[in-house]
């Protein structure tokens, strides 16, 4: 499944889509990238006069590539397209800040995908390969979200 097809099936859109490209994907791992545009609205407030990408947005970017996009690839065409994604847990360490205009690369490796739960080791890096964040993320692919 090619990059554009996976991204078109993601349930996000601007201003909350944090995936530009899926560079490679197979049954065990996925690699994707995103460029944090200087004009993203949250930079006005995080921080005042000192724009740095919020950690929660980095985690969101890692989850969109490492769980949602990866999950779309893993379920292929076999499953109902009306599935929903639920982010269920994260444990993360931040090692380096991301400034406006930077491009990040996210690699996610499957720990397991069973009974609809995808658990992965996810790493975000800069273009030269310096680690920004490493995390263990989990999400559920489900037919309906219980309130």
């Amino acid at each position: 499944m090619e990059s554009a097809k996976i991204i078109s099936r993601l349930p996000y859109s601007e201003p909350f889509l944090f995936v530009d490209e899926i560079i490679s994907v197979d049954e065990n791992s996925i690699l994707g990238s995103f460029r944090f545009d200087e004009n993203l609205d949250f930079y006005r407030g995080h921080f005042r006069n000192n724009p740095i990408t919020p950690g929660v947005i980095l985690i969101e970017c890692m989850a969109q590539i490492g769980l949602a996009a990866f999950g779309i690839y893993l379920i292929k065409d076999e499953t109902d397209r009306n599935v929903q994604f639920v982010f269920t847990s994260s444990e993360a360490e931040f090692l380096k800040p991301v400034f406006p205009g930077e491009t990040v690369f996210v690699t996610s490796r499957k720990i397991y995908f069973r009974f609809g739960k995808l658990k992965c080791e996810v790493i975000m890096e800069t273009e030269p390969g310096e680690k920004i964040c490493k995390a263990t993320l989990s999400g559920m692919i489900t037919n309906q979200i219980v309130p």
């Binding site: 847990s89 069973r114 609809g116 559920m140």
Partner: peptide, 11 residues
């Protein structure tokens, strides 16, 4: 227990 952790319990 949430459904995600039910999977961990099963595994």
């Amino acid at each position: 227990i949430n459904s995600a952790n039910l999977v961990d319990i099963a595994l």
